[in-house]
């Protein structure tokens, strides 16, 4: 297996705020990697840095061997990186079909069409002409995933797909993941829900306050270790030391 995405010693953030400290992760082609961590651990920043929406301060991001640093966000889509953003962020002026079509704006060749997206998410079939704003949360999330697929990605970044959705809906959505990877896309999943992440991922990376606190194959990780890495227990953390001073 060759590495599709190699992030090495990546630092990034917003304005003066540093959110990531020398993060290194690797995603192999065909594997599903789950990035877990508490709120504020830097998961979303990591994804936004990979897509180019936030600048890389230092370190490198290589995709299929190519250095992405000088590639602007809209070109990274053409390279085959796409993201389902947290909060879904559908375009309210566009109806469902148009939201899907705009996902394929870059005209990158590949298997995905509106019809195929509807095959994967049959619930969208009667909704194609509707304004996206009137959909339920689960329906919107299906559109958001479908919209990302329309770019015919090699790497699809899924940010907090389960956020704010009923468990049964989340299960439905994740059930589609094998069909997605079967069409040749590698998935990087960000989740707060550890159980959900472990069930779909081959590899797991846990972030804590902008640093990698644990990584390994999901099958081999001990639940107690994950919990410790997730909440930072047993580590001497910045927050802890500050509390000591304050």
């Amino acid at each position: 297996m060759s590495p599709l995405l190699e992030v090495s010693e990546l630092s990034s953030g917003y304005g003066d705020f540093r959110a990531l400290y020398d993060i290194s992760i690797t995603v192999n082609e065909g594997e599903t990697l789950a990035v877990i961590g508490a709120n504020g651990a830097g998961k979303t920043t990591l994804l936004r840095a990979i897509t180019g929406l936030v600048p890389t301060w230092s370190g490198s991001i290589r995709f299929d061997g190519q250095n992405l640093l000088s590639v602007p966000a809209h070109r990274r889509v053409a390279e085959g990186i796409t993201m389902v953003p947290e909060g879904r962020l559908l375009f309210p002026s566009l109806n469902v079909r148009e939201n899907l079509l705009v996902g394929g704006h870059g005209r990158r060749p590949g298997p995905w069409t509106v019809e195929r997206v509807v095959e994967v998410f049959p619930l969208l079939a009667p909704l194609l002409g509707r304004p996206s704003a009137v959909l339920s949360g689960g329906e919107q999330q299906a559109v958001a995933i479908g919209r990302a697929l329309m770019a015919n990605p090699r790497l699809i970044l899924l940010d907090e797909v389960s956020l704010g959705l009923a468990p049964v809906v989340v299960r439905q959505l994740y059930a589609a993941l094998p069909q997605i990877t079967a069409h040749g896309a590698t998935a990087l999943v960000v989740e707060q829900d550890i159980g959900q992440a472990m069930s779909v991922a081959d590899q797991v990376v846990c972030l804590l306050e902008g640093r990698v606190s644990l990584e390994g194959p999901s099958a081999g990780l001990d639940r107690a270790d994950i919990t410790a890495a997730y909440f930072g227990m047993g580590h001497r953390t910045e927050a802890g030391s500050n509390e000591g001073q304050g």
Binding site: Y14, G15, F17, A19, N39, G40, G42, T44, V54
Partner: peptide, 9 residues
């Protein structure tokens, strides 16, 4: 601060 929305400081 938890994963803030991107905004120029």
């Amino acid at each position: 601060v938890g994963d803030p929305e991107p905004q120029t400081a």
